[in-house]
């Protein structure tokens, strides 16, 4: 229990103190995960839409694969991205390894299947409701996907948030491809891992509480937004 009490004190001190190196870590964390989710969403929504609206050979296999990849171990994703971005790898010339860019790529790999699989479900349900009307108006498939994404934006926000939660809480992948370099690729989770390995459990737990707090703020905003939208748009 002394650790927990210490952790609370640490968390409060961290927030109250606004320590510049902590601010740096928090900003980088948000920046990396936000970019990764943005990128993943840009890939996943059209992908989910295509899987919801088009019928083609291999579609079912792709859906199963996506659902399975939702549980992709971060370390595996990290290792794959590491091998790709390593100087000896296919994309080594880009020099992205051990940069925030590499971390964004790794998180993107983790998040895309989640957003795609969840949005496919949402869009498929919407399509059942809208299909005849949109076809009657003469909307093509691509346009229909765009329309459904906009119509389902509040439900899709939940899918995107699930992805964001995964991205921001993940440590295995960003540790491998980012290298946890101080002031450069150190994010909340890798900092927590580092403090744990230094034996500073209270500080690690304090950082963890801060991370949870951030997660709560993001989810609460989304929840309120969704509730508001329900009242307003019906």
């Amino acid at each position: 229990m002394t650790e927990l009490r210490g952790a609370f004190a640490q968390a409060l001190a961290l927030i109250g103190g606004a320590d510049p190196s902590l601010v740096e870590i928090v900003l980088l964390t948000v920046q990396v995960s936000f970019s990764a989710v943005l990128l993943a969403t840009a890939i996943a929504l059209p992908l989910g839409g295509a899987l919801a609206l088009y019928r083609f050979p291999g579609r079912r296999g792709l859906v199963v694969l996506l659902n399975a990849l939702m549980g992709l171990p971060p370390v595996v994703a990290g290792l794959a991205v590491y091998l790709l971005l390593s100087r000896s790898g296919a994309l080594g010339a880009w020099g992205l390894l051990f940069t925030p860019g590499a971390m964004i790529a790794a998180q993107c790999v983790l998040v895309t299947p989640i957003v795609a699989a969840l949005s496919r479900q949402v869009l498929e349900d919407l399509w059942a409701e809208y299909a005849e009307q949109l076809r009657s108006l003469g909307a093509g498939r691509a346009r229909a996907i765009a329309t459904l994404v906009w119509e389902g934006r509040h439900a899709l926000l939940t899918a995107v948030l699930a992805g964001f939660g995964r991205a921001i809480a993940e440590v295995g992948a960003v540790l491998i491809v980012g290298g946890n370099i101080a002031h450069h690729t150190r994010v909340m989770t890798t900092a927590i891992a580092l403090e744990t390995s230094k034996g500073d459990l209270a500080l690690a737990l304090g950082l963890g509480m801060l991370l949870i707090g951030m997660s709560i703020v993001v989810n609460a905003s989304a929840y309120l937004l969704k509730e508001y939208a329900q009242v307003r748009y019906g």
Binding site: S88, G92, G179, I181, A182, H184, T185
Partner: peptide, 19 residues
């Protein structure tokens, strides 16, 4: 200087790959 801190074995493999 950006330091990637790993075990010695892992650090050597990272260096071997030119990373």
């Amino acid at each position: 200087v950006r330091v990637v801190a790993l075990g010695t074995g892992q650090a050597m493999r990272v260096a071997e790959r030119g990373d």
